[in-house]
Amino acid sequence: MQIDLSGKHALVTGSTGGIGYGIASRLAECGARVTLNGRSEDSVQQAVDALQSALPDAALGGIAADLSVPEACDALLSHLGPVDILINNAGIFGPQDFFEAEDSLWQKYWDVNVMGGVRLSRALTPGMVDRGWGRVLFLGSESAFNIPADMIHYGVTKAAYVALARGLAKRLAGTGVTVNSLLPGPTLSDGMTEGLNPEAGQSVEDAARDFVMQNRPSSIIQRAATVEEVANMALYAVSPLSSATTGASLRVDGGVVDTL
């Protein structure tokens, strides 16, 4: 299966590390011109430099912007130009008991995990419609359906992203622009790795496996997914090959969500 994204411009938000960086790498490997994004100039430049070193022929750029701030979104858009592929990946997560989660925390998660994607999609999809082709992908999570009791605020924002993707897909029906959400499960990304505490002599992969079996025992693969496995699904979803896939919640959760 050959995927050729030559001539396509992709924006991947929150792509200075983890799943976002992995997706950006796969898109660039397939010929897309990729704009990376993060909240700081330094982190963006480091990510661009690292990816350029790995893929010397790739067409890469980077724009720093905190997408939870409307003015920062506007500034990013003013420097961006037309986009054919939009990956709404930027997000935050962290445990907090429901009864200790104040309004300010809920608002922060809503601004970061939802509104950045809303603003960028609202601004960039009309151009895709005019050109008759486009791909939008919202990074949800298995937590959208399997709401964590210790991260209800996070799960709610991911459920919102799934609903947003479905609704926008219907709004853009018949235009040649597809919109989907991607639902990773536990993934061996930078964030997960930082939170693990491997025992002496234990590999990160084995520590992640133990975490999955303790916290997501419904996992069928019985391990954490790799960033590359998630990025491969994202690549398909934004490729020309996925033209009949829209309004879908694409699971790459290792079978954690126990439903047909």
Rank of each mutant, 00 (worst) to 15 (best):
V177M: 00
E205L: 15
A173H: 15
N146M: 10
G14T: 08
S68G: 10
L105D: 03
L188H: 02
V44C: 04
Y236Q: 07
G255D: 11
L235A: 11
S249G: 09
G140R: 09
L235W: 10
L67E: 01
I220A: 12
R171G: 14
D74Q: 05
A90T: 01
Y21S: 10
M1Q: 14
L76A: 10
N37F: 01
A75N: 15
Q96D: 04
S242Q: 03
L77F: 03
V112W: 00
Y109N: 08
G91E: 03
D42G: 11
A50R: 08
H9G: 01
P217H: 12
V256D: 06
C30S: 04
L5W: 01
Y109T: 05
A173W: 13
D150C: 02
L168G: 05
V204M: 14
E102I: 00
K108H: 13
G185S: 12
Q96M: 04
F211T: 07
D74K: 01
L137S: 04
D66V: 07
G38P: 13
T125V: 12
P148Q: 10
G7R: 15
L124N: 09
A24L: 09
A208H: 07
A173C: 14
T157C: 12
A225N: 15
L182F: 06
V238A: 01
V252T: 00
L124E: 08
L183F: 09
N180V: 02
V162Y: 02
G247I: 00
P184G: 03
G255P: 11
D150W: 01
G117W: 12
L36W: 07
L235T: 15
Q96T: 04
S15V: 04
N232H: 06
S249K: 13
E41Q: 06
G201V: 02
G201E: 01
E29T: 12
R39T: 13
G185N: 10
R223M: 04
L182Y: 06
S121Y: 03
E142H: 07
G117Q: 09
G167Y: 06
L241V: 10
Y154R: 01
P217Q: 12
W133K: 01
Q45E: 11
P126F: 05
S104Y: 07
G174N: 10
T193H: 12
D206W: 05
R171T: 14
L260V: 14
I152M: 03
R251I: 11
